[in-house]
């Protein structure tokens, strides 16, 4: 049967999505989770796995949470 995707791979795919949509659409954590489950399939990707991937992006500083009338995962502001 199919193997679960690695956290890093999901984090990378999430980061690409955040980059692609930057400035056009803000994504909530659940939007990212749904997109990843759709991309990898629910047999290979799960909510807990996606939550770990979001945590990795945030703790690593590649993304931040920002509040824009709701909480979103976005790219950090440019220095």
């Amino acid at each position: 049967m199919s193997q679960e995707v690695g956290v890093e791979e999901v984090a990378e795919a999430m980061f690409d999505l955040v980059k692609q949509t930057h400035g056009k659409k803000n994504l909530k954590p659940m939007d990212l989770i749904k997109a990843m489950i759709q991309k990898f399939g629910d047999d290979r990707c799960s909510k807990p796995l996606c939550k770990k991937a979001i945590r990795e992006l945030i703790d690593g500083g590649r993304c931040i949470y920002s509040y824009i009338g709701g909480s979103y995962v976005t790219l950090p502001p440019e220095e």
Partner: peptide, 8 residues
């Protein structure tokens, strides 16, 4: 609102 918080 906006981009402000503590790490993580």
């Amino acid at each position: 609102g906006g981009l402000v918080g503590v790490m993580g």
